[in-house]
């Protein structure tokens, strides 16, 4: 009798701790890879610390780093470029992706092959995409310049990437090429999950193709759309690799993004304090934008 009372005690204790045990790895990873660096950066953002001068933070300087970032000559252009890139990029990729998804949803011949090919750009590393487009944008015989001349819109003489009017657009184009399929595939999956009888009910209700899209199909894939829009917006807000490979932010500051500025401050100038302040400014901005977006997008979401 006695062992019957003692024996279950051990499994019970294990059972009580099991949930914590199971989430421990992800919590530890999150804490060490996200929270610790963020807090480390927060602390450093209040210090003067340049790795070219010292391996250790030199002096507590309060908000001076923040002032410097916000008043720096590259901050406003970077912010503007970043906002242009992330807002227009998300909108164009969503719109094009939706169009492709609607096309895919029609059972046209060759659709299964197209669907398989479509995912390919998304699987390429952004740096590689950057190099691909660098060759295509090359003024000395690149494909893009030749095509533009062919359709009667020749690129600027200094090259597509060499002109401050086209450099940012060129980055945007490369990003759209790579990420539109992502929207297309996800939205296509969303459209597939719309019950066919809903579409049929709408047809019997007399809905035109346009009404069907705006009042039935789009609202029903909105849940999916809201999530991927937020994801893509945050990724675009941090765009750095394409900028590095294609333009290095130039000419001048014409294609400089916040992500590239951050890289410049931290890994070129080694000003860790300044880069940390930039990081926190970006974190705060992204969070404000995402919270605003979520407040609007998740309203009335009871179904």
């Amino acid at each position: 009798m006695s062992h019957a009372q003692v024996a279950p005690a051990r499994p019970n204790r294990l059972r009580a701790w099991l949930p914590f045990l199971l989430i421990a790895p992800s919590v530890i990873l999150l804490l060490s890879l996200v929270l610790y660096p963020l807090l480390f950066a927060l602390k450093n953002s209040f210090y003067f610390w340049n790795l070219q001068r010292s391996a250790e933070p030199l002096q507590f300087i309060g908000l001076a780093n923040y002032k410097m970032v916000l008043s720096g000559p590259e901050f406003l252009p970077s912010l503007t470029n970043t906002l242009i890139l992330s807002v227009t990029g998300t909108i164009i990729e969503f719109a094009l992706g939706l169009a492709v998804a609607l096309l895919l949803a029609n059972r046209l011949p060759g659709m299964s092959v197209s669907r398989a090919l479509l995912i390919l750009p998304t699987t390429i590393a952004p740096v590689v995409v950057g190099f691909l487009f660098r060759y295509m944008y090359d003024p000395a015989g690149g494909l893009a310049g030749w095509l533009l001349t062919l359709i009667g819109a020749p690129p600027p003489a200094e090259g597509i990437l060499g002109s401050s009017t086209t450099a940012l657009a060129a980055i945007l184009f490369a990003d759209v090429w790579q990420w539109t399929p992502f929207f297309a595939i996800v939205l296509y999956a969303g459209l597939l999950s719309v019950s066919p009888s809903l579409i049929e009910a709408a047809r019997l209700d007399g809905a035109s193709a346009w009404t069907m899209l705006w009042r039935i199909k789009l609202p029903l894939v909105m849940k999916t759309a809201v999530i991927i829009i937020i994801l893509r917006f945050m990724q675009l807000f941090n765009t750095f690799d394409l900028v590095l490979v294609l333009t290095k932010g130039g000419p001048g500051l014409s294609s400089r993004t916040l992500g590239y500025t951050l890289y410049q401050q931290g890994l070129v100038d080694f000003n860790i304090g300044l880069a940390s302040a930039s990081t926190w400014i970006i974190v705060i901005m992204v969070n404000i934008l995402v919270t605003l977006y979520a407040a609007i997008a998740f309203k009335n979401w009871e179904w």
Partner: peptide, 26 residues
């Protein structure tokens, strides 16, 4: 013609009123 579906096929994102009004709006 008007059809009542086996799974009802109500538009989940619309209220009862909007569900019934949709066909008339068209």
């Amino acid at each position: 013609v008007a059809m009542v579906f086996q799974n009802y096929a109500l538009y989940p994102h619309m209220t009862v009123f909007q569900n019934m009004a949709f066909g008339l709006e068209q």
